[in-house]
């Protein structure tokens, strides 16, 4: 049974969080160990396993990113497999592989990494380059803003997915799914960059 079914939810991405929480508590109570105290060991063990699965399900569905990733997995999307398959196509056809992440983001990621390296090097020598620090601060704000923008974008894709599910529109589902994949890929770059910049600025 997938996580959505555990809560009797449709496989939709817009989730009523308070309702989810309520039903999580209700289901948890049913599985509470106290209720099984006088039951046979096998039954106790089964309830325990079910309860830990319930916890995983709740944690996954509660979190917007984890929920989206989980749904994509149910849809059979494995990011790594996708990338490898694309390389194989490039190898056999001789056509350049289309990078999953937009080239300008790669460019920015590379540039920022260069600056970070410079910053770390300067620090090692016991120097602090105010200009560099200032640039990194600016980069950090820019990436933070991009990161928040992805959240709004993701939510609009959720609506598209949910609507496509309601109307049973396969083409629209595929379009929404692919858009979510590329958004999550972009997001993983942004997240790494923000993390690295924060690290460099703090220490």
């Amino acid at each position: 049974m997938d996580y959505f079914h555990i809560f009797s939810l449709p496989t939709k991405l817009t989730v009523d969080l308070p309702a989810l929480e309520k039903s999580f508590y209700a289901l948890s109570r049913k599985l509470h160990p106290d209720r099984f105290a006088s039951r046979p060991a096998a039954e106790q063990a089964a309830a325990l396993a079910e309860s830990s699965n319930l916890n995983d399900a709740y944690r996954t569905l509660k979190d917007p990113i984890a929920r989206t990733e989980y749904l994509l997995k149910l849809e059979g999307i494995e990011l790594e497999e996708q990338s490898k398959a694309a390389t194989e196509v490039a190898r056999t056809t001789g056509v350049a592989k289309k990078q999953i992440v937009p080239p300008d983001l790669l460019e920015e990621a590379f540039e920022l990494n260069m600056q970070l390296e410079e910053m770390r090097m300067a620090k090692k020598m016991g120097e602090d380059d105010p200009q560099l620090r200032h640039d990194l601060q600016a980069a950090k704000s820019a990436f933070d803003a991009k990161m928040s923008a992805t959240q709004a974008e993701l939510e609009s894709l959720w609506s598209k997915w949910d609507a496509a599910l309601d109307t049973n529109n396969a083409a629209a589902k595929t379009a929404a799914r692919d858009a979510m994949v590329s958004l999550l890929n972009r997001r993983s770059y942004l997240r790494n960059l923000v993390r690295d910049v924060n690290e460099a600025l703090e220490t």
């Binding site: 990338s83 999953i100 992440v101 080239p103 790669l106 990621a109 590379f110 993983s188 790494n192 960059l193």
Partner: peptide, 13 residues
């Protein structure tokens, strides 16, 4: 060639 691995967010030139 500038490429990236979306799985981990690494970049290579």
């Amino acid at each position: 060639g500038l490429v990236g691995a979306p799985e981990c967010g690494d970049v290579m030139r």
